[in-house]
Design a protein around this nucleic acid. Structure first.
Length: 581
DNA sequence: GCCGTTTTCGGCCCGACTGTTTTCAGTCG
C-alpha cells in the first residue's frame, strides 16, 4: 500500500462522504490528508512502521487508525462500506463541470441515475429538468460538461501550458487600460501538470479586456462571462479562467489566484489572528476599512511574514518556516553556471556539437557536459568506445574555437544494463570529465531488481550522476518501481549526484523527492537533457522543480564554478576512493 | 476529522457566477 494508493482512497472517501452529505469540514479533512500523504516524498509505510503517522499534518487518531488498517490488511472497512452504499458512476459524475455532490446525490436518488451514460440519456430525453431547481439550461450544461469530459485528456504538462499562457497574455497586454498581466494558479506555482489555466489582469477598462479575451483565436466556447471573471474552453478542450481587477488590488489578487487553496486558507487564518479578513480584493479590518496591497510582498508583510515564493505555496510547511524566519534561499536560474546533460547528432540530438556549444554559451552558461547515449540504447544509435574517442577530439577542437569563458566537458549518458553493469568499459569512462548513467530499458523490473540495479550504478566509482532516476514520462509512463529511500541512501553514501531532469515530460526527480533527497544529504544537479539548440531554456523547468523541492543553490552541484565542480568529480583514483568511501 | 499561547470543544476562508429562484443554493476556484 503506497502513498499514492492511500491518497486515492482518502480522496475517493471524501467524494463519497460529500455525496452522502457529510459535513464540509470532515470532507475537507479527508482531502487534506490525501494531499499531505501525496506530498510526503518518503514512504508512508516507513512512517507507519515507526509509529509516527500522527506527526503528518492533517492526520489525527482516526485517520492514523485507517492508515494502520490499510497497511496491515490492505483493506479499509469504512472505504468498502462507502463503496457499497454509493454507485461508482455517481461518484464519477463529480468530474462533470457544474455537477457537485448535492446535484449528483439528487440525480441518483430522485431520478435513479447511476452512471454518466445514464445521466447523458436522461438529459437528452429532457428528464433532468423534472427536478426542482434544475431547468433546461442546467440540462444543456450537463450535456456540454459530459462532452468536455469525454474530450479531456487529463492534466496538461507545465511545458505545454506555458506557451498558451504566454500567447494569451501577450494579446491581452495590447488591450487598452491594461497595467499588469500574469499567469496565476498551479502554472505560476510551477506544478508539473496544470488542470485549468488561470490568468490575471489589472486594468482600468475591464470590459475591453473581457471582450478581447472572448475573441482570442484559441477560444472555442465561452463558458461563463461576468464583469470580473470569464471562463473559456480552447479548441483542445483546455479551460482558461481570466480575472480582471483594479491595479491597486493586484497584490491580494495575485496571492489569492496563485494559491494553492491550502496555502490561502493558512494565510486567511493568520489574517484572522490579526483581526483582519483576507480576500482577493483586500485585507479588511473589523471596522470594515480596507488595506489595499498593490504587491504580494505587502500582503505577506501585513500578515507578519516574509515573501513566500509561489513555488513553495502548497501548505507543506512554508507558512511555519516563514513565521520562524527559516524559509530556504531557493536556487535561482541565474545560479546555474553549467548544464550537465545534452545530446548531439552523434546520438539522438538534432544539432551538432558546435551548434549546441554555441547555444549553451549564448544562453549564458559557463560550461556544458556532452552526454550522448552509449551504444547499448540501440534506438538512438549511440556511441561506441571509438565514437567516444572521436568525440573527445571534437570537443577539444570546439573548445579551442569558442575560446575563453565557456568550456565544453566530455561526458556520456551511459546505459545501465539489466544487471546493473554499464555498457562501456572502465577505460573509456575513466577518460571523461563526468559520467552520467541512466536506465532506459527494463523499467518494469521488480522493485528489488530495479533498486539493486540502480544502487549498483550509483556505487560504480566511475559514475558521477544518475540521470532521470525514476524514468517516468508524465502522462505517458509510470515511474519505475524503485525503493527510493535505498537509492537516496546509496547516493548520499557514495557522493553520487542525482539529476533533476528539466524536460517538462520528465521533471525527474520530482519536487517532493527533491526535498526528501536533500534531507538525506544527496547532492543534486539540474540538467536540461537538451536534444536541440533551443532546449537549454528548459533549465527553467528544472530549477522550478528544485525550488518546489525547497532546494537552495548549495544543494545543486552545477551552481558551482567549473573548478569546484571538477574538484567534486575528481577524476583521479584518490579522489574517487575518497568520495566513495 | 483535525487542532490547540482562544487546548478536549467549537471552531474550521471568502467571493463570483449561474440558474433558478422571488431571496438563494450549488458549484467553483
Amino acid at each position: 500500500m503506497n502513498n499514492r494508493q492511500v491518497g486515492e482512497i482518502f480522496d475517493a472517501m471524501a467524494d463519497m462522504l460529500d455525496i452522502q452529505g457529510a459535513g464540509y469540514h470532515r470532507v475537507r479533512a479527508y482531502r487534506r490528508a490525501a494531499e499531505n500523504v501525496a506530498a510526503l516524498g518518503q514512504p508512508l509505510q516507513e512512517i507507519w512502521s515507526r509509529g509516527e503517522l500522527e506527526s503528518i499534518p492533517g492526520i489525527g487518531a482516526t485517520l492514523a487508525a485507517k492508515i494502520d488498517e490499510l497497511m496491515r490488511t490492505g483493506q479499509l472497512e469504512a472505504y468498502q462500506q462507502l463503496r457499497a452504499q454509493i454507485p461508482e458512476g455517481v461518484v464519477a459524475m463529480l468530474q462533470i463541470t457544474g455537477i457537485g455532490p448535492k446535484t449528483a446525490a439528487r440525480l441518483w436518488k430522485e431520478l435513479g441515475l447511476e452512471s454518466i451514460e445514464a445521466l447523458e440519456r436522461a438529459a437528452e430525453a429532457g428528464r433532468v429538468r423534472d427536478l426542482s431547481g434544475l431547468g433546461p439550461k442546467t440540462e444543456q450544461n450537463i450535456l456540454a460538461g459530459i462532452d468536455a469530459l469525454k474530450r479531456r485528456t487529463g492534466r496538461t504538462r507545465m511545458g505545454d501550458a506555458w506557451p498558451l499562457a504566454r500567447d494569451m497574455l501577450a494579446a491581452l497586454r495590447e488591450t487598452k487600460g491594461v497595467r499588469q498581466a500574469a499567469p496565476a494558479g498551479s502554472l505560476r506555482r510551477m506544478r508539473e501538470t496544470i488542470g485549468d489555466l488561470d490568468l490575471l489582469v489589472a486594468s482600468s477598462d475591464p470590459e475591453s479586456v473581457m471582450s478581447r479575451f472572448r475573441q482570442l483565436p484559441q477560444v472555442e466556447e465561452v463558458l461563463l462571462s461576468g464583469p470580473t471573471k470569464t471562463s473559456i474552453r480552447t479548441h483542445q478542450g483546455f479551460q482558461v479562467d481570466l480575472r480582471v481587477l483594479e491595479p491597486a488590488r493586484w497584490g491580494t489578487a495575485l496571492v489569492y489566484f496563485t494559491g494553492s487553496k491550502a496555502h490561502n486558507i493558512r494565510l486567511r487564518g493568520l489574517a484572522l489572528d490579526r483581526g483582519l479578513s483576507l480576500s482577493e480584493y483586500a485585507l479588511k479590518r473589523e471596522d470594515g476599512s480596507e488595506i489595499l496591497c498593490g504587491t504580494e510582498a505587502e500582503v505577506y508583510e501585513t500578515l507578519g511574514l516574509p515573501f513566500i515564493p509561489p513555488e513553495l505555496r502548497e501548505d507543506r510547511g512554508e507558512v511555519e518556516a516563514a513565521l520562524a524566519g527559516s524559509l530556504p534561499d531557493l536556487v535561482k536560474l541565474r545560479d546555474l553556471r553549467g548544464d550537465l546533460q545534452f545530446h548531439t547528432t552523434r546520438s539522438d540530438g538534432h544539432h551538432t556539437l558546435l551548434e549546441m556549444a554555441e547555444s549553451a554559451q549564448a544562453y549564458g552558461l559557463e560550461y556544458a557536459l556532452v552526454t550522448d547515449h552509449s551504444h547499448g540504447l540501440g534506438v538512438t544509435g549511440g556511441l561506441t568506445v571509438s565514437d567516444l574517442q572521436e568525440q573527445q577530439a571534437e570537443i577539444a577542437a570546439v573548445n579551442r574555437q569558442l575560446g575563453g569563458g565557456f568550456r565544453l566537458l566530455a561526458g556520456v549518458e551511459v546505459e545501465v544494463r539489466g544487471n546493473g553493469s554499464l555498457d562501456l568499459p572502465d577505460e573509456a569512462l575513466a577518460g571523461l570529465d563526468l559520467v552520467v548513467a541512466a536506465v532506459h530499458s527494463g523499467l518494469r523490473q521488480s522493485r528489488d531488481q530495479l533498486t539493486t540495479r540502480m544502487v549498483a550504478a550509483i556505487e560504480n566509482p566511475h559514475v558521477d550522476i544518475i540521470a532521470h532516476p525514476t524514468g517516468r514520462l508524465i502522462g505517458e509512463r509510470e515511474p519505475g518501481d524503485l525503493e527510493l529511500e535505498a537509492v537516496f541512501a546509496a547516493a548520499a553514501a557514495t557522493g553520487t549526484a542525482l539529476e533533476v531532469n528539466a524536460h517538462p515530460a520528465r521533471l525527474d526527480l520530482k519536487d517532493v523527492h527533491v526535498r526528501r533527497a536533500i534531507e538525506m544529504g544527496v547532492g543534486l544537479v539540474i540538467s536540461s537533457d537538451a536534444h536541440a539548440a533551443g532546449d537549454f531554456q528548459l533549465l527553467e523547468f528544472g530549477v522550478a522543480t528544485a525550488q518546489r523541492g525547497w532546494a537552495a543553490a548549495g544543494d545543486i552541484l552545477n551552481t558551482r564554478p567549473l573548478e569546484s565542480l571538477l574538484d567534486w568529480a575528481d577524476r583521479g583514483p584518490a579522489g574517487h576512493t575518497q568520495r566513495h568511501r
